[in-house]
Every structure is written in structure tokens, then in C-alpha cells.
Amino acid sequence: MDISNYLYLSVILFTIGALGVLIRRNAIVIFMCIELMLNASNLALVTFSRIHGNLDGQVASFFTMVVAACEVVVGLAIIVTIYRSRRSASVDDASLLKN
């Protein structure tokens, strides 16, 4: 199987994630789309690692996972707090910084 298919899959996943971030209003869904983008980039990194025959890409994807884990901790905490105070997880409602 052609190895570039992994890259196509990665691009498709990233695009779905990005569109999800831009289009959806629910913070949880946006959050999951971000995770999708991160994982898409992880897939690309691992593929590049394979193509170049070294471990750099795999090491980078480990870093991404660590960052993603941290992000989950902070991001979910924020979302839960917003939901508690506003009874809604819509990001459009949380626009108080505008003015």
C-alpha cells in the first residue's frame, strides 16, 4: 500500500477537525475536533518518520500527546466551569470579552 495514503488520511482528518472547530458551537464537540486535528498531525508525523527512516517524527508525536493530555485537563475544566455558570456549553454565548 502506498505510504502517501496515510498522509491523505491525515489531511482529511485535519480538515474535518478544522471545519468542526469553525462550524460547531458546542464546546465539547469543538474540543473533540481539536483532538482530531492533533491526532491527524500525529499521523502525519509518524508517516514522515517512516518515510525518512528515523525516529524524529515519532518523538514529536509523543510530545503532541503530552500536550494533548494537558490540554484535555485544562480545557475540560474550563468547559465544565462555563457550563456550570451559564448552563450552556455554546462557545457563542461565551463572548463577554467582546466589549
Partner: peptide, 8 residues
């Protein structure tokens, strides 16, 4: 405009 999605 305060909308996270437009910033994104």
C-alpha cells in the same frame, strides 16, 4: 467580535 470560532 467575541466569537471564538471567528478567531479560529
Amino acid at each position: 467580535n467575541g466569537y471564538v470560532r471567528s478567531y479560529a
